[in-house]
Design a protein around this nucleic acid. Structure first.
Lengths: 181, 181
DNA sequence: AACGAAATAGAATGATCGTTCTAGAGGTGT
DNA sequence: ACACCTCTAGAACGATCATTCTATTTCGTT
């Protein structure tokens, strides 16, 4: 991947995390990446939407690998693995100034109305994450999806509360597992 | 509440659910509500942001009551209550054409960068929901927050997959409760 | 050194954004 | 009938949007 392409993706990623997809303008992306409009359209002829799809695909893969690595490093106790993911997420959120560290949930929210391309890219990432998590949790796909949904929801709650505590609380609850009465 | 105010809130709610906060223009709100720009600014002098806050506050209360009613109607079995909420959410999503039925998560995502007012309103709603859910679940605030986060995350997953199945899967997982190994 | 493709650079465009503004319509109390 | 206030109505404003366009620079290959 060319350096310009990488810089555009990184800039778009950061801005999507802060302001969302619709809340980010192409001018902001050019300013942050240091590249002019022409370069953005040269590397992404599809314009802003193509940049969005590329961000979702690229960082969907990166974050999937990172979280999976964190899970494996936590050992083979289910509770410990879950805690590791959510405590880690809380730290990332706090260190990052309470900006949503995952651009995918935000893009997914804003994608539907117009283009199915963006929504499809998000769906693909969620499927990959779910499958990967299900492998770790003895093939329990339902629980894997619940974990990912809770993580995305936790990012939202942590953001508006400006605190990593909601993520830690969710991690405690899921690690304990208190569904049935 | 005046009829005009109600129509504006309803129109903004529907549009936020479909296109998000930043993705919705004031012109769309006037078109859908059938009221001109002057009326919107008469009832909401603070402009679009005040409309957003009012939508979050109003529908935050409405949905909180609806979900709580559904929970109580499901009896006193924890698993059954959880299933009722997520199965109900899946039905709503499917019936509504896979539009996010909750405008709050979307607004929360897009709020942070600029105005704290919007983020504060979202945080307030999440707190109320968490407290109400914790009362139902024997004061377990952690689990209550996990449920709400999973519900918000589930809405996102259901939206991009254009299916209610993710919500049902999450409900099954949380009702079963499989955290610790 | 010279050529052609790749990439950078940013001005120009038309559309649309949120907001402000002035004018008129509707209703109520006197 | 008149004054007064609430609400409706939509034109006008400057700013900004995503995109297109034409040059110019950079760079690998000959």
């Amino acid at each position: 991947m060319s350096d310009a392409r990488r810089r555009i993706l990184q800039a778009a990623h950061d801005l999507f995390c802060s302001y969302g997809y619709n809340g980010t303008s192409l001018k902001q992306i050019t300013a942050r990446s240091g590249l002019p409009t022409g370069s953005v359209y040269h590397h992404f002829p599809g314009g802003k939407e193509q940049v969005g799809v590329a961000v979702v695909q690229h960082f969907g893969r990166v974050y999937g690998e990172q979280v999976l690595a964190a899970v494996r490093a936590a050992g083979d106790d289910r509770g410990a693995m879950i805690r590791a993911v959510f405590d880690g997420a809380a730290s990332v959120v706090e260190f990052g100034g309470f900006v949503d560290p995952c651009p995918i949930g935000g893009v997914a929210r804003e994608s539907a109305g117009a283009s199915g391309v963006l929504a499809d890219a998000c769906d693909d990432v969620f499927r990959r994450w779910s499958d990967a998590a299900a492998e770790v949790f003895q093939g329990d796909l339902d629980f894997a999806m619940a974990l990912i949904a809770a993580l995305e929801g936790g990012f939202i709650m942590a953001r508006v509360r400006r605190s990593g505590e909601p993520l830690r609380a969710i991690g405690r609850a899921l690690a304990q597992g208190r569904g049935s009465s």
